[in-house]
């Protein structure tokens, strides 16, 4: 049977553990969001920059005479640049130290 005293110590121990876990999880979440949360936007931005450059070359530089070609080439380069930026994110120092920590 629980006395009042042991109940309060157990209670506070329980909350200490909960707070410790919450702190660990929240710092981990913030760290992961900081390191990898921008992957989606970087990828899309690269594709749109490539596509926009292609459309600009077609419509304004060559006045529409080469119409769909530079758009498609620009789109292809944009997609490649997007994948390349994904590799860049994996090569960042933050990701590297994370790997080292994981492997010991």
């Amino acid at each position: 049977m629980l006395t009042n005293c042991s109940f309060t110590t157990e209670f506070s121990e329980f909350w200490e553990v909960v707070i410790k876990m919450a702190k660990k999880v929240s710092t981990e979440v913030v760290e992961l969001l900081g390191n990898y949360g921008h992957i989606g936007f970087t990828f899309v931005a690269a594709i749109f920059i490539g596509l926009g450059g292609g459309i600009y070359l077609d419509e304004h530089f060559f006045d529409g005479s080469t119409s769909p070609w530079f758009t498609f080439i620009g789109l292809a380069f944009g997609i490649l640049a997007g994948f390349k930026s994904l590799f860049d994110i994996l090569r960042t120092p933050a990701a590297k130290t994370k790997d080292k920590d994981a492997t010991g």
């Binding site: 921008h38 936007f41 970087t42 899309v44 931005a45 690269a46 749109f48 920059i49 490539g50 450059g53 380069f77 944009g78 640049a81 997007g82 390349k84 930026s85 860049d88």
Partner: peptide, 10 residues
Amino acid sequence: IISNIARLAS
């Protein structure tokens, strides 16, 4: 070049 300019945008 594209991925460098994409940095500016993103």
